[in-house]
């Protein structure tokens, strides 16, 4: 590999950066089209929904801890808790479930 590693990393980083940078540098002015505005209004929700499901089911070591964490996250989100609270509560729930599952295996 040797020196080639630098070149590979340069290509990776360069392409990734350009994809992110060009739209931000090009579209500096506010876009007035109602259609584009509406599209952009919905976009984050669509992206995050698609990234969360079904990936969340396999986010932890077992489907059960993932489901438990998911349920807690949904309940707390419905109560409009902040990001850190929801994220940590989901992790803690998943951790508890996995810990209990191991404990039960030992018995």
């Amino acid at each position: 590999m040797g020196n080639h590693i630098y070149l590979y990393i340069f290509v990776m980083a360069g392409v990734t950066y350009l994809v992110r940078m060009l739209p931000l540098a090009i579209f500096q002015k506010e876009i007035t089209s109602k259609f584009v505005q509406s599209f952009l209004f919905y976009m984050p929700y669509a992206v995050l929904g698609a990234m969360t499901f079904p990936a969340v089911f396999t986010a932890t070591a077992s489907i059960w801890s993932a489901l438990a964490g998911l349920v807690v996250a949904i309940l707390l989100s419905l109560r409009e808790k902040d990001l850190l609270t929801v994220a940590m509560a989901a992790c803690f729930t998943a951790f508890l479930v996995e810990w209990m599952m191991r404990f039960m295996q030992v018995l």
Binding site: T52, A59, T60, G69, A73, L83, T85, M88, F95
Partner: peptide
């Protein structure tokens, strides 16, 4: 393993 779900919890809290 448990930390793996943090990001999705955050996504849900946003949407």
């Amino acid at each position: 393993s448990a930390l793996g779900i943090a990001i999705y919890g955050m996504f849900l809290a946003i949407i």
